[in-house]
Design a protein around this nucleic acid. Structure first.
Lengths: 351, 351
DNA sequence: GCACGGCGTGGAATCGATTACACGGCACCG
DNA sequence: CGGTGCCGTGTAATCGATTCCACGCCGTGC
């Protein structure tokens, strides 16, 4: 592969001049510039990003460590992150932690070794020493979706409290009184927050959230199934199951169906995180939708602000309830009943 | 951040010795090794991968350029690719082309600039000059899923011919005679091959595939909707729509539902590419399943073979038909009728 | 007519690693 | 006892860029 030296030789100038041309430095004669550009074209020269990074100590690369690529929520997040980063002149390297802390550490270490300019993390746990050290050592960092308390790191996330309250109102209006939740890992902020928001909302209606109605999941489908089976085995099973993420909702749907029961007739189902597929499931699933794309973009902007010396801001955006049919008819007033017939969110503009 | 010089100074040795310790070179005394290791620990030293790559001309990184991250098929592919690469000591940088050739080129160029050791591509089009040049210039490369004819590049893919034949047999047995297909872009191999396989299979049953029953899609949901609407507007609409990928199937489902029609009573639906969500849609969708994980792993092995000087092999694995309810009852003999009640493929082992 | 300033340019240092080569010391062999 | 060879180590070149500094040249102003 041609290097800057080859270009310099071909153009009859020094490497310094070539570098100046490539970096749009003003101090280059028109003549030299033309000869350099001709040589670049001729040789098909492309600057070696590795060498450049070594010298400038910048990689123009962001690391994104997410909890689970197979979760459509995170896939969409990753997509919007890459898009915004590209618009700002950065590339993104994605690390999939698969909800496993040790894998998360592996990726963080790998990304740090590659000297990425900044790190976007949706932590799988409460924070490993590695991550805490990196944050304290001054690695530009932004948390997205989930975060680790006690660190001076900006957080970009959705606030689901209001939407959870709307959901409970909706369920109450439909006559449901025994409501259960499949929680995420307590070590994650989203894991514990959603339970809390749910409990608080229930309290407003004078409803309790007994221990038996809190199932411990891990954000994966299998745990949703297991927990739901436990609920169904109770002497007095809940009338509604609220899953703290979309994969666990899927597992719950499986468990209900495996018993030959029907949603919502025998038991109602709702989920945190809305995804395009919920429109097409049987029945369409009532869910709390996060502004995922906007979260990804805001997170990138905050991180790049931090990298480029500006002051990053934490951002909290509201989530909203999307009513479909999995909790019973008729649809609540908050939402048009035809929601599940509207054009699928799977489509997107590609202009 | 501490560099190798700091470690050398702290350990009282030269940088060469530090490097030798870190690279397990035999010619180091036990004493020196111990002092170096102690210094490494003390300083929290981590080798700079950028500098190392510059010197050794290896990044231990693979580039993966896929057509669409939001397509669960490619998400799963990406996941298995990363997993196998990690097992072999490589990292993966994913580029999402979004079915747009210019975006594909952007990522290929970016990855080449970063001097990735090899490239895994599922081309969005027939091959840009950039990609052809890279292949001919000797960049280690492997095509996965889709490929570009006429290049000496190994291809790892699934063969769907037999499964398409099974599908047609299934449809024929259910009494369907007017079968239509939503094709992918003709510029992609999977786009044209699937139509051909479908036509050939129909011919075996003495059925024709008229032009009106071939809709041109682009592998995105919206095109599936549009094409399906066209089918439904025909004087004699087809009895079955076969979508060449899962997103277009989703669009088709939307279009059918928007007319107030029902699958499979009014029109049947089948898809190429099986995804976990097809179990949960209304109705569960009959699909052709690729061995996605195995494809990703095989592709990485081929690429790493090529990178490390061994001879890579092309791999073709069979796809298989998974019958569910979207083409009509009763389920075909080829598959257990309870397929859609089996544990969801969304779960996975995490051991 | 001379000094000064700015512009275009090249030489060389530098980033942080790897590695070829040289060198001193010690052991072993003849 | 001297030569050979290996072992452990350090010096320095190198990868491909960026950038500081110095230098030569030219134009301008006094």
């Amino acid at each position: 592969m041609a290097s800057i030296k080859d270009v310099a030789a071909a153009a009859g100038v020094s490497v310094a001049t070539v570098s100046r041309v490539l970096n749009a430095h003003p101090s280059v004669s028109a003549d030299a510039r033309a000869r350099v550009l001709a040589a670049v074209e001729e040789l098909g020269y492309r600057p070696n990003a590795v060498a450049r990074s070594l010298r400038t100590d910048q990689t123009h690369t962001l690391g994104l460590v997410i909890s689970d690529v197979l979760n459509p929520y995170f896939t969409e997040l990753a997509r919007s992150v890459e898009e915004e980063a590209r618009a700002l002149g950065y590339s993104v390297i994605i690390g999939n932690a698969d909800e496993r802390p040790e894998l998360q550490d592996h990726h963080v270490r790998n990304l740090l070794d590659r000297r990425i300019d900044g790190l976007l993390v949706s932590p799988t746990d409460g924070g490993s020493p590695l991550m805490l050290d990196a944050a304290r050592a001054g690695t530009p960092m932004v948390f997205v979706d989930r975060w680790i308390p006690g660190l001076d790191v900006p957080v970009v996330r959705a606030d689901g409290r209001a939407a959870v309250r709307d959901l409970v109102a909706h369920l109450y209006a439909l006559g449901h009184r025994r409501l259960a939740i499949i929680a995420g890992p307590a070590a994650t902020t989203t894991g514990s927050e959603r339970v809390e928001a749910f409990r608080d909302a229930l309290a407003e209606y004078g409803l309790a959230l007994p221990g038996a109605y809190i199932g411990q999941g891990d954000f994966q489908a299998e745990s949703g199934r297991r927990v739901t089976e436990g609920f169904l085995d109770l002497p007095e099973p809940p009338q509604v199951v609220f899953a703290a993420d979309n994969l666990m909702a899927l597992g719950a749907l499986d468990a209900v169906r495996a018993r030959g029961l029907r949603v919502p007739d025998d038991i109602a189902l709702a989920a945190f995180d809305d995804i395009p597929w919920f429109v097409h499931t049987d029945p369409p699933v009532t869910a709390i939708a996060q502004p995922t794309g906007e979260l990804g973009r805001a997170a990138v902007r905050a991180l790049v602000d931090r990298i480029e010396g500006r002051t990053p801001r934490s951002v909290t955006l509201p989530a909203r309830l999307v009513v479909r049919r999995s909790c019973g008819e008729p649809a609540a007033p908050a939402q048009a009943p035809s929601a599940d017939l509207s054009p699928s969110p799977v489509q997107r503009s590609t202009s």
